[in-house]
Design a protein around this nucleic acid. Structure first.
Length: 505
RNA sequence: GCUCCGAUAGUGUAGCACGGCCAAUCAUGUCAGACUCUCACUCUGACGACUGGGGUUCAAAUCCCCAUCGGAGCACCA
């Protein structure tokens, strides 16, 4: 039976079933719905060792989307507990807050772990008293060998009193780096080696970059401990984290069990790799910027939110892009095309159009009088721009390269010409009507006046230098479309030069 | 070596907890056409996927097992 007639038949027999059929087909768009039996509290927890990247934006957007949707609370927590190897950048704290706000994800609460070290010390001490943690003096490789053999080290059962003494000495700074750590007692024979007696605190004598903290502490918690305590203290009810941190939950649950706390719900997502940027770590970027490979954290070739902003990507586009990715545990490798398509839908209706000629070539037109072209600022909204054309104009080298003598062309919004010579490039005026384009299918190219504005466009693929029509300088900080080139954001105007950042085609 | 995940079109995603509504959704992409004084936008159409093999079942993308492939953890990084 054909589906149509089947439905008809069913309609006769049981109309209510047809309705049900239609209803169930409607899919839930975007993020999966949450089943909540308590108020939602979520946190986004970056290490501010660089500015937020496109990857960070996924965390920011998804957390904020859920807390908005379910009237929850959004916390940003800076996990800045490593003053040495992943040293925080002082400026990055504000960059995060700024980019969050730009993304429409202003947090309800901001917490810096480096302000809260004493709280972690309290929990550590309690854990020691409960017999859930011990100070270990084993060298790293010695402990690893024991751990791999599922054997406890001699410090594991040294007793609570001793541990308390050692711990006091640890936080007092009596030990050197590498000399002692505080371990959480889990199950030394756990089948998963990643879980066995993990380190909660180590000694770092490098001062913290924040002047408020400086050299106040030399026993610093590791992520698993700091995160475990904070998630409880902050009342987090749902954690979304990367799959790479999935084992954290198994480790942290030991702390929660000792302390009698309830572990939050968790969700995970896979790694994201972006075709256009490849594998770039924050530390790798930092080095490349220091080496002068990139001009800074907002260089258009760099995968930071700041760079995207500078290029004219709108926050709504980035949000939608990230939400549509959903919450898969699969590692994904994606292209920014979808983001660009999303952004284009937003900017196309509002971006004014201008001519920009890159790699300009002079074209002399015989028989034409100087004229002022009147071109629409936008194809469907009102407004005209005026572009003066002399007996010479500039055209793109790309267009010239495929030209042959005798060819007829339309200079957009100006008039028709016929090429008389390629080098030097000359043409003659052959009229103004559109018949040429309509009937003879002549190509239409854009152009720029000889005395136009000098323009530099910075794009991920490199730099374009050329000339654009006057008026572009009035679009500072706006996104416009350079016709037949693409969208750009006008970044600066000075000394007769306009610098624009390429958005996308 | 040990331990965890995951696998739907080029890309991303829906469907998978409760097997039949799936001849598999949506977006993006590509191609073709329409519109247009832009190679933009918009519109129309086409293309394109359940990793493989077994099993359970009347029925499997969905449940089970194995294989393959991919990712991650086993740090005094986050």
């Amino acid at each position: 039976m054909a589906p149509a007639s089947r439905e008809e038949e069913l309609n006769k027999l049981a109309p209510e079933l047809v309705l049900e059929l239609k209803e169930k087909k409607e899919p839930e768009k975007g993020l999966p719905p949450l089943e909540l039996n308590e108020p939602l509290v979520m946190r986004f927890a970056p290490n501010p060792n660089g500015p937020p990247t496109i990857g960070s934006s996924r965390g920011i957007v998804v957390n904020s989307e859920y807390t908005k949707k379910y009237h929850g609370k959004l916390i940003i927590r800076f996990d800045d507990t490593d003053p040495a190897t992943k040293r925080p950048m002082l400026e990055a704290y504000d960059w995060y807050l700024d980019d969050c706000e730009w993304l429409g994800a202003k947090p309800d609460e901001v917490v810096k772990a480096s302000d809260r070290i004493p709280l972690y010390y309290e929990v550590a001490e309690e854990l020691i008293r409960k017999g859930g943690a011990y100070v270990c003096f084993c060298e790293q490789d010695v402990f690893k060998t024991l751990k791999d053999a599922k054997s406890p080290c001699s410090h594991r059962e040294q007793g609570i009193e001793k541990n308390l003494v050692f711990w006091e000495k640890m936080i007092a700074g009596d030990y050197k780096e590498q000399e002692a750590v505080l371990r959480i007692k889990t199950d030394i024979a756990h089948k998963d080696p990643a879980i066995r007696d993990w380190v909660a605190f180590r000694i770092i004598k490098t001062p913290h970059p924040r002047p408020q903290v400086g050299d106040k502490y030399c026993a610093w918690p590791l992520l698993d401990f700091e995160g475990a305590v904070e998630d409880h203290l902050l009342g987090t009810t749902l954690i979304i984290r990367g799959k790479d941190l999935a084992d954290s939950e198994k480790r942290q649950r030991y702390v929660y069990k000792y302390m009698g706390w309830t572990y939050p719900k968790t969700m995970h997502w896979g790694r994201v790799q972006i075709h256009e940027f490849g594998k770039l770590s924050t530390s790798g970027l930092k080095k490349a910027i220091a080496d002068g490979v990139y001009t800074g954290w907002d260089d258009p070739r760099v995968p930071t939110i700041r760079a995207l902003r500078r290029r004219g990507i709108k926050p709504e586009a980035l949000r939608k892009f990230m939400i549509d990715l959903g919450l898969g545990e699969t590692d994904i490798s994606l292209s920014l095309d979808t983001l660009y398509a999303e952004n284009r839908k937003i900017i196309d209706p509002v971006a004014n159009r201008y001519f920009f000629v890159w790699e300009p070539v002079e074209l002399e037109i015989e028989g034409a009088e100087p004229k002022i072209a009147k071109a629409p600022l936008h194809p469907s909204r009102g407004g005209l721009r005026e572009i003066p054309a002399g007996t010479k104009v500039l055209v793109c080298k790309n267009d010239v390269d495929i030209l042959s003598a005798g060819e007829k062309l339309r200079l957009k919004d100006l008039y028709n010409i016929q090429i008389t010579n390629i080098s030097p490039l000359t043409a003659k005026f052959i009229g103004t009507d559109m018949e040429l384009v309509k009937k003879e299918k002549a190509r239409i190219i854009h152009w720029a006046p000889l005395d136009g504005l000098k323009i530099r466009v910075l794009s991920p693929e490199g730099e374009y230098i050329g000339v654009g029509e006057k008026g572009i300088e009035k679009e500072l900080n706006k996104v416009v479309q350079f016709e037949r080139f693409g969208f750009v954001r006008v970044d600066s105007v000075k000394d007769n030069w306009v610098v624009a950042y390429f958005t996308h085609r």
